[in-house]
């Protein structure tokens, strides 16, 4: 198929140390912003921090000066409640001034608990209702192939999200239409609001399910930013008519703050300033260790 894309820039280059630093930046900024809102999804962000970091600093072709650039790679979040971890990355890359973060969730702010594409430059699709995002990404991958553009579409899904029927409708269609530029990333942190995913409605054997649906399945340590980067860069180069890819990223819900790692209730919560400062210090100390 002839390409509508004449010259694509190189993918961003970042070493493991920088990606790890940006992942902790995601965590500490999320803590700071949640302090403004007085409620937020700490541990859902912490499990996904290295995935955000790897994608935006080491994989995706993006251009903050052109958020609507037609050839850009796309990122969608089925688990939109982790957007408080993505907003600092977008500000850091220059999609909007960092001061905008300081109004997080306050009256009239573009930044709420879930991402809104009509309000925030760099958000490729709005979310908040779990289960839609893979279908949205499917449409983007179809549109990209129809218009002979070479962008990839990365869709981060929660592991609890696997319980939504629409995910499997999209999984069937993605494989049927052979959307090689579509990459699902399951943040397999093991927990959802009401408890462990295994206890609520179990989803295993997850890799077998995706394989049975016709996807090319990979598993990775979701906190090894270098490994996530390398795998996603490789998958981004798959042909547009290959089978779509599913990455099961094994993560720890609340990664970086010890008491959150042990208690799934931190899916949603609030830390008073003193505890927030201590959590930020713990994350920074962990990075130096």
């Amino acid at each position: 198929m002839p390409s509508a894309t004449t010259l694509l820039p190189d993918r961003p280059v970042a070493d493991e140390a920088f990606l790890a630093d940006r992942a902790d930046f995601v965590r500490t900024e999320a803590i700071r912003l949640i302090e403004l809102a007085k409620v937020g999804h700490y541990s859902s962000v912490f499990s996904a921090a290295e995935i955000f970091s790897a994608l935006y600093y080491g994989v995706m072709r993006t251009d903050a000066s052109r958020p609507d650039w037609p050839d850009r790679d796309r990122f969608l979040m089925g688990k939109g409640h982790a957007a408080v971890g993505l907003f600092p990355v977008l500000a850091d890359l220059g999609y909007f001034p960092a001061e905008v973060l300081n109004g997080y969730t306050r009256l009239g702010s573009p930044l709420g608990d879930h991402p809104d594409m009509t309000k925030v430059p760099g958000i490729d699709f709005s979310s908040g209702s779990i289960g839609h995002a893979l279908s949205n990404g499917l449409g983007m991958a179809l549109g990209g192939r129809m218009s002979a553009r070479e962008f990839s579409v990365f869709v981060m899904l929660g592991d609890g999200e696997m319980q939504e029927g629409q995910v499997w409708e999209a999984a069937l269609a993605g494989a049927h239409h052979r959307l090689g530029k579509l990459v699902a990333i399951v943040d397999r942190n093991g927990f959802q609001l009401d408890g462990s995913v295994d206890d609520v409605i179990g989803i295993e054997p997850l890799a077998d399910k995706w394989r049975a649906f016709g996807w090319d399945v990979h598993e990775v340590d979701g906190h090894d930013a270098g490994a996530v980067r390398d795998l996603l860069r490789q998958l981004a180069e798959r042909p547009a008519d290959a089978a779509p890819s599913c990455v099961i990223a094994h993560t720890l819900k609340g990664k970086g703050v010890a008491y959150m790692e042990e208690e799934p209730g931190w899916h949603l919560g609030y830390l008073v300033p003193a505890d927030a400062a201590a959590a930020i210090a713990e994350i920074r100390a962990g990075a130096r260790a």
């Binding site: 699709f125 839609h132 279908s135 949205n136 499917l138 449409g139 983007m140 179809l142 549109g143 999209a170």
Partner: peptide
């Protein structure tokens, strides 16, 4: 949902 993605 896919139609919405297509529209983007």
């Amino acid at each position: 949902s896919a139609a919405a993605g297509l529209a983007t």
